[in-house]
Design a protein around this nucleic acid. Structure first.
Lengths: 199, 199, 199, 199
DNA sequence: TATGAATGAGTCTTCATTCAT
DNA sequence: TATGAATGAAGACTCATTCAT
């Protein structure tokens, strides 16, 4: 937070805001149409900007997709945020269990789930996207592992199962419109505690 | 050209074979390019059939997508097949646990996972596809519930968690290229048993 | 000229006619606008064919340009045609000199000259085009050399000078609108004879 | 910032330098990409100037093309420069023949040849450019005719043939990558002397 | 049943040009 | 004088779909 922001930095700020503006518009379009169905002209309309001008900030449509995937899913690091609110020394299981409610709320959101699936499908065939997705996920998991006593293989395995469970919620949300009624949060919490605290 | 079969039925058979031929080709293309990236001419090439002729069997490309989603993922009913091999009276947990290996092998296959995500993403925005996906899933779950003692809400909840866990594996496969090393199958089996047999 | 043309050959013929149709239209457009100014939609209009359909015959606009350059300038082989009309044994100089009138008429045509310059300019920066142009020219010169007693370096040099002289006429036609008045055909003929028969 | 020079004149000087700067950059770009392939932003980058600012000096891209053609090819007046080095009274043929080496070196340069063809092609379809090209050529030829005893039709004709021969070298350079080996400078000089001194 | 020629709307992208600063 | 953000009209090319054969 410099007092006198240098000019170049101001310009960068404007550019950043513009890029964010495009990314926001793009997310909106991608959510409702998908990456390949959303047209640049729809995105530009949503961004309140001429389609040509978008190319000052992104060199291609794929670049926008990459930008979205990159900025991507910071919401996923929820348990980490949660951990910081807990009294120091709280055990991992409790931290994760405490985060379940919010995490489920996020993952079962159809709009969130659909964009996630879109990204994953793209990652399945576009190496550039796959790379971003994988690096994102890896760095998130490293952060989460810091909450554990050690980064042993066992803890990695626990994390994988918890992640699968949670991300699986997004899949279920798309497959089962009655998920809210069918899902038992207590059971879910219990399962996570089991995974994280079994010896 | 069997002598006895009535003509109309022969045509139906041929037609069915042709449709299957197209669907097979389409799956192949969709896996590697995605629904909207795969072109009708690629599909027709893969199907060994002129693109025009495909329109005798499917009235549009969306129809092919629907056809694929419909026929979709019979592989998912794995535990049911498994149940039939088990001695009558085996408990549900054991049936599911016995199916874990095969189920994981299926779900962590990148090609399977990518097509699944493609379908789910499409379901997230195309109501016609959503409908098929949801009916498929509902009917599968009804079948699986038959393995339980009753169709109580608790058992539905158990099934949801198991499903999330398993489908989450597909997500993880796309997010973590080292999933094979990180995943602990014993832990997974233990988790499923816990979910299915806790009181 | 086979009596019973096989089907495939008929189809090829249609395709060939279509391609020629496109090339004709393209030449027309390229002459009046230049390669990069002529749009595919102008070409398609001139060809009486949808722009999309052109891509059944040419995989890109550059391919059309290449096609034109390739088919290119058969008119250039004029002296060879001329040579065949002369009594056997006529000396080279006389053959060339006899061809001067027609050759000049061709080269000083503005429309011919402009397209030639367009092609040469493109050859100056597009290696694919350069290659075609150079192979065309090489093969023409080999044919012309056959008219000489031998393919000695001296004869190659003579040919180069004659070629420069003749192609230079196209340049002059574009530079000097009064070329017709200024050019002395007798002097030109004399020059060529000098080049070709000096010892 | 010289003290004595009046302001208006200073501006003009700066402006002239700026225009030249743009033209230099444009030539560079046009040589490698062609008139219509080179973009204003490439030119502005090469000129070290914002693209918007170029419009203070040239009202359109076509104007830059015109500027280049105008300033154009002073190198062509080579024999005149040559003539000034020769003892007064040297005959025309000798002046031209003496200039052959340098002239050929210039004309066979691919980069020079390509830009020349580009200009001529443009002249073939753009009347404004044609006009400049033709006035340039006319004025050059008037200057060259001053070297002759008189401006008779015969001498004009000689000049045309010499010009065609020399400009034809540029065409040959583009058509024949082995021109250096094939061309015989002595033969060329002999030809020019023949053209210029025959009675 | 089967083909593939044909269409034309739609895609992403580029670019000359303008204008607020 | 100088910038570069911004525009929007093209441009080349693709593709689902139709239809004559």
């Amino acid at each position: 937070m410099p007092k006198k922001t240098p000019l170049s930095s101001v310009e960068t700020d404007i550019a950043k805001r513009r890029k964010a503006q495009v990314l926001d518009a793009a997310i909106e379009c991608f959510r409702s149409r998908g990456f390949h169905q959303a047209s640049m002209s729809q995105i530009s309309a949503a961004a309140g900007m001429s389609s040509g001008h978008i190319y000052h900030y992104f060199k291609s449509k794929e670049d926008i997709v990459a930008g979205i995937v990159e900025r991507g899913q910071e919401e996923l690091s929820l348990p980490i945020a949660q951990a910081k609110k807990m009294p120091a020394g709280t055990d991992v299981a409790s931290i994760f269990v405490a985060a379940v409610d919010e995490a489920v709320a996020l993952h079962k959101d159809i709009s969130f789930a659909a964009l996630t699936m879109e990204i994953l499908a793209e990652a399945g065939r576009n190496p550039k996207i796959a790379d971003i997705v994988q690096r994102n996920s890896a760095s998130l998991h490293e952060d989460l592992l810091d909450l554990f006593e050690d980064k042993s293989h066992k803890n990695r395995a626990r994390l994988e199962i918890c992640a699968a469970l949670m991300e699986g919620i997004s899949v279920r949300a798309l497959r089962n419109p009655r998920l809210d009624a069918d899902l038992d949060l207590d059971m879910l919490r219990d399962t996570m505690r089991h995974v994280l605290s079994s010896t």
